[in-house]
Design a protein around this nucleic acid. Sequence first.
DNA 1: TCTGGGGTCCTAGGACCC
DNA 2: TCTGGGGTCCTAGGACCC
Length: 415
Amino acid sequence: MVASATILHADLDAFYASVEQLLDPSLRGRPIAVGGGVVLAASYEARAFGVRGGMPGRRARELCPQLCFVGGQFSEYQRLGDAAIEVMRDFTPLIERISIDEAFADVAGCEPLFGSPEEMAKSIRRRVRAEVGLPISLGVARTKHLAKIASQGAKPDGLVVVPAGTERDFLRDLPVELMWGVGPVAKARLAERGIFTIGQLARTSDSALQRLLGQAVGGKLAALARDQDPRRIVTDRRARSVGAQSALGRRPATGAVVRPTLLNLADRVATRLRAKSRAGRTVTVRVRFADLRAVTRSLTQPAAISATLTLAEIAEDLVRAALADHPTEKSISLLAISVSHLEFDTELQLELPYRLDADERRPSTAKGAARWTADRAMDAIRDRFGRESIGYGSVVLGDRRAVPDAFRELAEREL
DNA sequence: TCTGGGGTCCTAGGACCC
DNA sequence: TCTGGGGTCCTAGGACCC
């Protein structure tokens, strides 16, 4: 017996833009874009003009002169995204949240209570529209891969069901780039081999695909094209890394630019780590030069860290090393810090400072303790009085950012 | 055509150990 | 000292996703 189609994929349509139109009725039916310098989301009215997410604001205005830019009510995005996904939870606890506006659900076994998966999908769409006020598209299929492709086909504001047994027919003539894991590079490589549809992909041998795209990607794609998708719903996914980045435009690669930027990034990353009682062993920095080429440098230590100043010091050393390897690069356009190899911080464990005190060969535990105490005190003050109430001097002063903190938080994953 | 921020996973080479 | 094999960890880069 063939497994039935019980996987649902739900995706809120033009999410940020739809929220703005929900909250301000005068925006409904009009081409709007959330963002400013960059379009973070475009309403379907704006998309009709060719406006797309990720597009520079200036380009969007050229395509659509009457385009209305709205500021972005970021906390509302989180609230309404949560509310929409919560509707699904009334049908099953097997929910896998992918992002603020997207989730999988497995409704196997729920039929006696709520009817067929298709009926559940219809009722989720109806309820999200009625109770939250937002349009949402759903795909229903036997696998995550198919459900996701189906929901993309359902947009805007629709439902597509792929009945069990019809998967191969459904996939055959679809373009390869609809598949999970096929981006611009893979698409181009496949095109060189005359492979444009998922059906053509399914008829290509595993070994040929692995030679073309690499062992892992090739193998997975071959399986997906033949509708073999073993992935299950994962309800508790933990982050494996925490990072922050800052685009700088074009700034000289000097300590005066690098140091305060890294301190700010370290502050954001370390604060998030400590808030979840986590710490990480590996610090990775990324330096992007003016020509957009980027390099990374990383350091893995035996003990995990979460102290702001320790993270900032390691990051600074790594960036310095990266810049020293590229002496002809005089300006940089982005700096990033990421912490991985995450562990649970046992509170009692005091971190050693990264740099040794000049006059002693042993690390100073007193200094480690001082940093731990200072960080905790600062975290507590910010909890009460807000993030801007206190900070490391140059962080507070140098806090001129193009992107508001509220938007950064939307992209953060649950630790 | 090159604009932001936060992530995941894979590959390949080298160090090191048994 | 050389040769072989297997495994783990670290580093750097890259493709891709939301």
